[in-house]
Design a protein around this nucleic acid. Structure first.
Lengths: 199, 199
DNA sequence: GGAGTTATTTACCATTCAGTCAAGAACTGA
DNA sequence: TCAGTTCTTGACTGAATGGTAAATAACTCC
């Protein structure tokens, strides 16, 4: 009955997310967003609201993807312990591979805005809670399977590993070299007390 | 021979640093800087160069202070091991105490700018190298004193602890609660293998 | 081929931005 | 007192900012 949209909404959000990811919130102008999305200001406003609304959509998309990736890494089929190790190493590897130092939008967005923007802060915190849950599930499974010491509190160990992973991200963004980053990952793995089934 | 300055240079840098700390680089305008420093634009430009130059000065000041604090915590007189523990707990405590979620300018600045601004990236990396050195010295001392297991590589353990500390900072900025943050610190401490002299 | 509805374009607005400049104020040494 | 020097002030610039609105284009149903 009416003129159809000429763009794919998900793709626009994705383009906007990439731009925010590169330049941050304050560092991204509406013109930047128009350029990367191919939309005019009018369409952008009619479809997504203002810059802040669009950022929240993009940030939310990123957070959901990060959690989904972590869950896929950690909570899939098979033994939990090697999955956990692979996940830790994968984070280190992708941090090292990020030569342009784009880093993680979750880290960048919450560094820039969490102090002043409650919506961003809430979303970031919820994402960390989800990531923590995925890690805790993985650790509890590894304990049941005898690969990790059963006397540890899985929630506390998950919190520690989450902190290590966020630290890897922060150090990588500052330019720490590959050896250093991989060393952090391996040292964290080495210090996790093994269980009865250890090789 | 000439009109004297009406301001204290160090204090201006400190005010500017606080403003950048609150609002980030792109989020801070020259008018903001004039307001918090009390200087007019002309004076600001004549004395410190442009906004970017002033940011670098402020960032540099912050980095030097952070390293000096860490060195004071870690490398002072007395046994190294309890100093190390106190330092880790102090970081957790100050993160929890930061209710306004200002966080760390080193983290905020490098998240915002390290990907696009080589000067900021270099300064951030150098700061992390210094922090790592302070931690490695502390760990090596604790090993010599018999409080930490002598078979660990102090550089790798220092890298891990640095990552944990940066992770604490990142999680704190997103609003993780006190229990969670302190739990990370205590779990990290608990997993550090003790040496022959352990109680 | 309208009528009705939604999307897009484009010109536009007030405001704010980083940065400049000229005029004058404050000080010292002579 | 005044010449010389440095510092401060505040008005100014052109560009860019986020956001709006009116005109127009594209589509479907009747």
């Amino acid at each position: 009955m009416a003129r159809p949209r000429s763009f794919d909404e998900a793709e626009v959000i994705r383009s906007a997310r990439n731009q925010f990811h590169r330049s941050g919130y304050a560092g991204t102008s509406l013109e930047d967003l128009c350029r990367v999305t191919g939309l005019g200001k009018g369409s952008l406003y009619a479809s997504f609201g203002d810059k802040h609304d669009l950022f929240l959509r993009a940030f939310d998309l990123y957070c959901r993807e990060v959690v989904a990736e972590a869950r896929a890494d950690l909570n899939g089929p098979g033994p939990a312990y090697p999955r956990l190790l692979d996940h830790i190493r994968a984070i280190a590897k992708s941090t090292v591979a990020d030569r342009k130092r784009v880093g993680c939008l979750l880290a960048k967005g919450s560094a820039e805005l969490a102090g002043t923007d409650p919506e961003v802060a809430d979303r970031a915190l919820a994402t960390f809670v989800d990531l923590h849950g995925a890690l805790a599930d993985s650790i509890a499974a590894a304990q049941r399977e005898g690969d990790l010491a059963p006397d540890m509190n899985p929630n506390q160990v998950a919190a520690l590993i989450l902190a290590v992973l966020r630290g890897i991200e922060a150090l990588g963004k500052a330019g720490a070299n590959a050896e250093f980053i991989h060393g952090v990952a391996e040292q964290a793995i080495a210090l996790l007390p093994r269980g009865a089934a250890e090789a």
